[in-house]
């Protein structure tokens, strides 16, 4: 009987020392990921130039230029004059190339440095559908495989010649719920 007791105690001690209880101890795995970096007009939510004023620059990013440094500059029409209003339909388009069939809401915002001179509109937008309703911010809903084209209203009222104005448009997309 003593021998059996000793055997049991020894076995339990061995199991404790060796750590081979019935319990799970550990799991380890390594898995790979890979992401292609592509130009703005090929990505998941892509920005595709639709007018010569917008183009994809060497860095793959879309840029809008109404000046002679635009790579599509034809040698004439060097910019916009003071106290004029231009309206350009569909300067660029935002499209939903996500793979998971998801409708997205896209929020475009003109940086403060350009707020007085550029406003955006899109027929796909709910509140800024036409040039008359153009705003510094714009929200549009884009279904899978569809796009929303963004128009510009450029108003140089009060601006003087030989100046240039730069800024950014921030584009944010999120799941539409």
């Amino acid at each position: 009987m003593n021998k059996i007791a000793l055997l049991v105690i020894f076995s339990v001690a061995l199991a404790l020392v060796a750590g081979v209880g019935a319990n799970f101890r550990m799991f380890n795995a390594e898995r790979e990921f890979s992401v292609a970096v592509v130009a703005d007009d090929q990505e998941l939510i892509d920005l595709t130039p639709n007018q010569p004023y917008a183009f994809i620059d060497d860095d793959g990013k879309m840029i809008v230029r109404f000046d002679t440094l635009n790579r599509n500059y034809p040698g004439y029409g060097n910019g916009i004059s003071p106290d004029t209003i231009y309206v350009f339909d569909k300067v660029f388009c935002v499209s939903n190339g996500l793979w998971d069939n998801e409708t997205i809401a896209v929020d475009l915002r003109v940086s403060p440095s350009l707020e007085g001179i550029i406003k955006l509109y899109s027929p796909s937008s709910t509140e800024n559908r036409s040039p008359d309703e153009a705003g510094s911010t714009l929200i549009t809903v884009i279904k899978p495989g569809e796009d929303a084209c963004i128009g510009f209203v450029i108003n140089t009222t009060g601006y003087t010649k030989d100046n240039s104005y730069e800024g950014t448009i921030t584009i944010q997309g999120y799941r539409f719920t």
Partner: peptide
Amino acid sequence: PDEVINGTLTIHAE
């Protein structure tokens, strides 16, 4: 453009 982000996820559980 044309660059690739490559890497691994290491998953550990206990």
